[in-house]
Amino acid sequence: MLPLPALRPFLFGLVVLPLVKRVAKPVLREVVKASVGIALDVKKAADEARAELQEIAAEASAESAAGRPAARTARVTVAPVSDNGSKAP
Rank of each mutant, 00 (worst) to 15 (best):
M1E: 08
M1R: 12
L2V: 08
L2P: 06
L2R: 09
P3N: 04
P3S: 11
L4Q: 11
L4H: 09
L4E: 14
P5K: 13
A6G: 03
A6P: 03
L7R: 11
L7T: 05
R8A: 15
R8G: 01
R8H: 06
P9N: 10
P9V: 10
F10H: 05
L11P: 04
L11D: 03
L14F: 03
V15K: 13
V15I: 15
V15N: 05
V15M: 08
V15Q: 10
V16G: 00
L17W: 04
P18G: 02
P18Q: 10
L19A: 15
V20H: 02
V20L: 15
K21Q: 06
K21N: 09
K21W: 11
K21H: 06
K21L: 10
R22Q: 12
V23F: 02
V23K: 03
K25N: 01
P26Y: 03
P26R: 08
P26T: 09
L28P: 02
L28R: 11
R29M: 08
E30C: 00
V31M: 13
V32C: 00
V32S: 00
V32Y: 05
V32A: 08
K33L: 09
A34H: 06
G37R: 02
I38A: 05
A39M: 08
A39H: 01
L40C: 03
D41T: 04
K43W: 06
K44R: 12
A45C: 02
A45N: 04
A46G: 01
D47N: 12
E48V: 07
E48G: 02
A49T: 11
A49R: 11
A49W: 00
R50L: 14
A51Y: 07
A51H: 07
A51L: 14
L53T: 09
L53G: 06
Q54K: 07
Q54D: 14
Q54T: 05
I56E: 13
I56D: 10
A60M: 15
S61M: 07
S61F: 05
S61A: 08
A62K: 13
E63H: 06
E63A: 11
E63S: 13
A65T: 09
A65E: 12
A65Q: 12
A66P: 06
G67P: 12
G67C: 07
G67Q: 11
R68F: 07
R68L: 11
R68A: 14
P69K: 13
A71D: 13
A71G: 12
R72F: 11
R72P: 00
T73N: 03
T73C: 02
T73M: 03
A74D: 08
R75F: 08
R75Y: 06
V76D: 01
V76F: 02
V76C: 02
T77A: 07
V78K: 14
V78H: 00
V78Q: 14
A79S: 10
A79R: 15
P80E: 13
P80K: 10
V81F: 01
S82N: 09
D83I: 05
G85L: 08
S86T: 14
K87D: 08
K87G: 06
A88F: 00
A88D: 07
P89A: 15
P89W: 09
